[in-house]
Amino acid sequence: MGSLSSKNALVTGSTSGIGLAIARAFAAEGANVTINGLGDAAAIEKERAGIERDFGVKCRYSGANMMDGGAVTAMIREAEEAFGSLDILVNNAGIQHVAPIDEFPDDKWEAIIRINLLAAFYAIKAALPGMKSRKWGRIINTASAHALVASPFKSAYVSAKHGIAGLTKTVA
């Protein structure tokens, strides 16, 4: 049994890449995991089933849209109901678009802010009451160097990641 065998984790943006590696690492330590993200349904199911097979834990998938605060809140509630608690929340979902600010499409700006920053707010807000009531919880927010410094043509991403750094400090 791993050191997290009595814990339940949820990782946003975890159907591939860094998020999937994080989810698998928690499962390797014995945590049940909820994965979330976009992609081909068959590929996602293969990853979900693979986590259960490889680590002997329960793994569920949520297709909650990180653009929708209500869907994020519902995803947290569903994870708590499915596993009895949500002990570890990893806000990892993120998207990027690169363009000069005067050419930045409004819909891209809003999508980046919603997925990279607002989704984390809604997830934290929904997860904290249970963590407080159990007197145990961990929240990990994925930022990047862009939480500290800027790069040309990445105004929305840099703004969201600066926001994640501030949100993390505030919640802590």
Rank of each mutant, 00 (worst) to 15 (best):
L4M: 15
S6I: 10
N8M: 08
N8P: 03
N8T: 12
A9P: 00
T12H: 09
G13R: 05
S14D: 02
G17M: 01
I18P: 01
I18K: 07
I18T: 09
L20M: 06
L20C: 01
L20T: 01
A21N: 14
I22M: 06
R24T: 04
A25G: 08
F26A: 07
A27G: 04
A28Q: 13
A31E: 02
N32D: 13
V33W: 03
I35P: 01
L38N: 13
D40Y: 11
D40H: 12
A41W: 08
A41V: 13
A42T: 14
A43H: 10
I44V: 15
E52S: 11
E52D: 04
F55S: 02
F55D: 01
V57R: 03
C59N: 03
C59D: 00
R60L: 12
A64S: 14
A64F: 13
M66T: 12
G69D: 07
G69F: 06
V72F: 08
A74H: 09
M75H: 01
M75K: 02
I76T: 00
R77D: 09
R77F: 05
E78L: 07
A79G: 00
E80P: 00
L86S: 01
L86K: 03
L89A: 01
L89C: 02
L89Y: 00
V90G: 02
N91D: 05
A93G: 01
Q96K: 06
H97T: 08
A99C: 03
D102P: 02
E103A: 15
P105V: 11
D106I: 13
D107V: 11
D107M: 10
K108T: 05
W109H: 08
I112V: 14
I112C: 05
I113V: 15
I115M: 09
I115N: 06
I115V: 15
N116E: 03
N116V: 04
L128S: 04
L128T: 12
P129N: 08
P129G: 06
P129M: 08
G130V: 07
M131V: 06
R134I: 07
R134W: 07
R134F: 05
R134V: 07
G137Q: 11
G137S: 11
G137D: 09
I139W: 11
T142W: 02
T142L: 15
S144C: 09
S144M: 09
A145F: 08
L148A: 13
A150G: 15
P152L: 12
P152S: 13
A156E: 02
Y157L: 04
S159D: 00
H162M: 07
G163W: 00
G166N: 10
G166M: 10
L167G: 03
T168D: 06
K169H: 11
K169F: 07
T170S: 15
T170E: 09
